[in-house]
Amino acid sequence: MALLAQQVIALTGTTPTYTAAAASTTVTCGERSFLHVKNTAGSSMTVTLTATGRVRGQLAADLVVTVPATTGDKMIGPLAAELLAGASDGVSAAITYSSTTNVTVANLAI
């Protein structure tokens, strides 16, 4: 899984850079971290963020977000580490996409 570079939004303004979605990626978790997904395909698609957190010993459910077709645009977050950070590094969230055709993403932080 490739780590998407996190882009910090500056007070003076930031023009985010979007990359084509890959089947699976990782992003940096944090209370100020967000994933921006754009879908211009003719069908809706889903983004799944793998949950790693536990509540009373039970694994939390994965976060599944539907992005509408054609002009779909979703901001997902904040990406809380206690819910999404992987055990291998403690800071990266694993993300999969049901489709990557005409889907672009940006990992943003404020």
Rank of each mutant, 00 (worst) to 15 (best):
V64E: 10
S92P: 06
A106F: 11
V103F: 08
T46G: 04
T46W: 03
P16L: 05
T48P: 03
Q58C: 00
V64G: 03
V27Q: 13
V91E: 11
A80D: 01
A23T: 14
N39H: 10
Y18Q: 07
T19P: 05
D62L: 05
E82F: 03
M45V: 06
P16R: 07
M75I: 12
V55M: 08
A20C: 06
L49D: 08
L11C: 00
A80L: 12
G72T: 00
S43H: 02
A60Q: 13
T48Q: 14
S33R: 14
S33N: 13
A94N: 12
L35Q: 10
T14V: 03
D73N: 14
P78M: 06
T17S: 14
T19G: 11
V27T: 14
L35K: 11
R32Y: 04
F34N: 05
T66D: 08
L3R: 15
L83R: 11
S24Q: 15
A20D: 15
V8D: 10
V27R: 12
D62H: 09
E31M: 05
R32C: 00
L59F: 03
L3F: 14
T101E: 08
T48F: 08
A5Q: 15
S92H: 15
D89Y: 08
E82W: 00
S33P: 01
A2N: 15
A81Y: 00
T12Y: 01
L84A: 03
A23N: 07
E82R: 03
A60K: 13
S44T: 11
T25E: 15
L83F: 00
S43G: 04
H36R: 15
G57M: 02
G53A: 02
T101M: 05
I76T: 09
G77P: 01
I76H: 10
G13R: 01
T48G: 02
L108N: 06
T48R: 15
N102A: 13
D89F: 07
G57T: 00
S92W: 11
G77I: 05
V47R: 13
D73K: 05
T101I: 11
I110Y: 07
S24H: 10
T71A: 02
L83K: 08
L79K: 09
Y18D: 07
Q58L: 11
E82M: 01
T101D: 13
T12L: 09
G77D: 06
G77A: 06
T12K: 04
Q58F: 02
V103M: 12
V55D: 07
A21P: 04
V67R: 06
R32T: 08
T96W: 05
A85E: 07
K74I: 04
Q7R: 08
Y18F: 15
P68M: 01
N102L: 13
A21F: 04
L84R: 09
M75K: 12
T70G: 01
A94K: 14
R54G: 00
V37H: 10
